[in-house]
Nucleic acid binder design. Sequence first.
DNA 1: TATTCCACTAACCTAAAGGTTACTACTAAC
DNA 2: GTTAGTAGTAACCTTTAGGTTAGTGGAATA
Lengths: 135, 135
Amino acid sequence: METRKIKHAHHDTTQCYSRLNAIGDALYVLGGKWKLRIIMALSEGNLRFNELQRLVKGISPRVLSNELKELELNGFVKRHIHTEGTVLVEYELTEYSDTLGDVLYALSEWGMMHRENIRKQMRTGDVVPAGEAVE
Amino acid sequence: METRKIKHAHHDTTQCYSRLNAIGDALYVLGGKWKLRIIMALSEGNLRFNELQRLVKGISPRVLSNELKELELNGFVKRHIHTEGTVLVEYELTEYSDTLGDVLYALSEWGMMHRENIRKQMRTGDVVPAGEAVE
DNA sequence: TATTCCACTAACCTAAAGGTTACTACTAAC
DNA sequence: GTTAGTAGTAACCTTTAGGTTAGTGGAATA
């Protein structure tokens, strides 16, 4: 069978791969339902376990505990234990988490643009692309 | 019980929420194991179904088919059917997918930085944070 | 005519993420 | 002494993402 070749902009393929792996890494440590929410919550100030659970709505203690451990392993969060009187545990963002600035900015800008786009399409009666509900 | 309040930088909370939702939207349409890989593959030129399957290593036809449908719904990909002789289906990125530029750039830059950081920690004998294997 | 390629789909399965409910051991306040 | 708050853990369940294997119907090739 004849092979129809279509346009083909050339790229440096190995560089493409390393970028792709890098994106994979980033999504691996930031992906999932809760990690960024927790980071956002902590960005307003240090919080204790139960404070976090109240602020990050819908998260269960089990999941919160797991996520905090992973965030700590990945160097985004520090755990401080205060032992005066009652033992209190305080979670704090590290400086390393500040390096996420550009990523969070780009994601949120794109997300807002996308959301606005969907809203426009709904107004003009076009098909609605899938995605989280836009209330 | 006495409540120990810790530092508390103030933010505009509603703006925080909308950013968070936006980030959620972005991760929703881009997250998962395959979507970005498919987009990257198509960024080098249009491809047919089986070409895509060969290029995006490890993906099964079932999953590829599902992902392409979602990508089409979200407006990243167009499906062209050529019916001269054999029916051939060609997948093409839309202009809308170009708007992902900043997101992909930020993610890949951060990911490369993170990977390099982990490599450094391994050399200096520190604890290795979790993440995908760095070969 | 048999084989191969095309673009998929169907049916089934596994593993991981996340949710639910209850519980622990401790302290402090009432 | 009872109640409530602290920071979680244990055991179990559901949902979803994704993987596996096989098959379909049509056209081109050998």
